[in-house]
Design a protein around this nucleic acid. Structure first.
Lengths: 246, 246
DNA sequence: CGCAACATTGAACGGTATCAAGTATGGTGG
DNA sequence: CCACCATACTTGATACCGTTCAATGTTGCG
């Protein structure tokens, strides 16, 4: 009974990635890919949504700005992520999305997308799954912000980004491009830039990481996982669109 | 063009609540409603999901327990909320869900649900929307945990719960049942129980709220909204199942 | 009545913020 | 090629918000 249900579930959700015909349909409906540069604003908070955005390469982040001018980054996106799967359902965006380093963006206009979702239910389910995956990541951030120390929080974030890049095949060894400034890290972790700097240095002095000029090298992954209290169970996303194809 | 798109969107998502025939189909597929008492565990972390759970009345919360024994509550559910819309897509739960006060639970077995979703796409979209709504609430919590003071965080949480209850029609005046202990509030807000107590008292002494014996009375809503930095824009959920019917 | 859970209070400690300099680093125009 | 500037990073001193520990008060329930 349980076995049957699980098989059915696997077929229903198609965990690995969207079936190829559905992917092709999505790509066919998309506008031509376009590049975006660092600090470019892809989605402005409060604006109505006109299309689904997919990050083909590079990184981006979603930011909330408070009335006192402080900021909190509520999501970081890597290649392959969908930038606004949940916001589609609201019709307007609650956050602003900014580019962190040079990226390539795929854009699918909403009317086209809704037509696709209607005729290809797997696409709708994939977007739902993507929404749920990002929600799971956010839950983990809540746990960190609420109950973990600055050091654990930072280490955990580095582990998460590394793991997510690896899932997408962008991170073969333990070194990768890491475009966030310390000030942006502070806005991710709910810390001051000064404290981010100090915590980074303790991680460096313990031989766990190297970080400079937008590159992160994990020297001791086991040690980092250790102090990060990192368990990747919560990262079971789907690849909406495969990376390889054009 | 924009107008057309928005009308289409409204039809596509049916914002208010699920069409009546779909609701009836859901209710027909559900097991008989059952009661659950305080502290009962509805979903255990790490367990595989067997059914969709809907809270018909009462309150519940989703908890993550860390390796050092500390806890973080990552979601609070009120009457009408779906307890695991996103977890459906994973097949297993990342959090434990506990009952906060006597509740009534509706349970729809997964195989039935998938059959329904296949034949009634509006149900799948409603669950997607519910997932996105809960994700939006979690984003707001991230902002609070990262960038707001204890006082603002607490006030904001009280405003949020009050607003959500009002959306569901469970909160006509400004007083309502509020079953969370100070220790549970601490686990929501990422604070110690001692500090929750002190912040509560400053809110009381300013004449903003009264809270005792599981009842919360908001004496000065405007003042509370003020220090809470509360903007309900992020709460645009859907009622998956109306409250009135049986 | 008496226990158990919850709430309240005080004192001392500590993690992190804030303020204020100072030091790379990289890009730009002359 | 250098002087200049902006941005990012580093470092120290001080203050505060919130924690921890410990004790006491309160409420409700078997």
């Amino acid at each position: 009974m349980l076995k049957v249900a699980e098989n059915f579930l696997t077929r229903f959700w198609s965990r690995a990635s969207l079936p190829v015909p559905d992917q092709q349909a999505l790509l066919a409906a998309a506008l031509p890919e376009r590049r975006a540069e660092k600090d470019e604003c892809l989605i402005e908070a409060g604006t109505s949504i006109r299309s689904l955005l997919v990050l083909r390469s590079g990184m981006a982040c979603a930011v909330r700005t408070l009335s006192d001018g402080s900021q909190q980054i509520v999501a970081v996106f890597v290649a392959g992520d969908t930038l606004n799967p949940g916001e589609l359902t609201f019709g307007r965006s609650l956050t602003s999305v900014y580019v962190l380093n040079p990226t390539v963006i795929l854009s699918i206009p909403l009317p086209e997308l809704y037509r696709l979702v209607t005729h290809r239910p797997a696409i709708g389910r994939a977007l739902w799954l993507e929404t749920a995956t990002q929600a799971a990541i956010q839950q983990e951030w809540i746990v960190g912000l609420g109950r973990r120390t600055a050091q654990t929080r930072l280490a955990h974030f580095l582990c998460e980004v590394s793991y997510r890049l690896r899932l997408r095949g962008c991170n073969d060894d333990d070194a990768f491009e890491f475009p966030l400034t310390q000030s942006e890290l502070a806005d991710v972790l709910g810390l001051s830039t000064v404290h981010v700097n100090r915590v980074l240095q303790t991680l460096r002095s313990r031989g766990l990481i190297e970080l400079n000029r937008n590159r992160l090298l994990i020297r001791n992954r086991v040690g980092l996982d250790e102090i990060a209290d990192f368990d990747p169970e919560y990262l079971h996303g789907v690849r909406l669109v495969d990376q390889g194809d054009t």
